[in-house]
């Protein structure tokens, strides 16, 4: 991909980034930060590419270290965000008593009260 196309995408992504968080309530600042933190764990894709093309054992070793770190960021980030948001779930039921709580999905197994 040429430089101008990448630049265009970058600039547009900046504005999307500004836009999606501009109205967030302070209640969700911490989960939002944590969620954004998980998303940059996608550097894992970069680490995998580098590790997949490594031929020198030292390069591979460093690349695998990057894979470990990036995976920790990605997996840990999403799990901890989910745990934070799980805390909001019990409250949901009480806000809209008539409706079926949407966040009460079958795969949610922990902390059901």
């Amino acid at each position: 991909m040429d430089g101008i196309a990448l630049l265009t995408i970058t600039v547009l992504a900046v504005f999307v980034g500004f836009e999606v968080v501009s109205k967030v309530s302070s209640t969700l600042h911490t989960p939002l930060m944590s969620g954004a933190n998980a998303i940059h764990g996608i550097i894992l894709v970069g680490a995998i590419i580098v590790a997949g093309q490594a031929s020198d054992p030292w390069v591979l070793a460093v690349a695998l270290l990057a894979v470990v770190l990036a995976t920790a960021n990605l997996v840990g980030g999403f799990v901890v965000t989910d745990r934070m948001l799980e805390m909001f779930r019990g409250r949901k039921r009480q806000v809209t008593p008539g409706r079926k709580p949407e966040l009460e999905e079958p795969e949610a197994k922990e902390g059901v009260r």
Partner: peptide, 20 residues
């Protein structure tokens, strides 16, 4: 790396993180 996904995801976090 010339990887568009990393560019987009990283920029999103960079921009939203700044606002946050």
């Amino acid at each position: 790396l010339g990887n568009v996904l990393l560019v987009v995801a990283g920029t999103l976090v960079g921009a939203s993180g700044t606002i946050l």
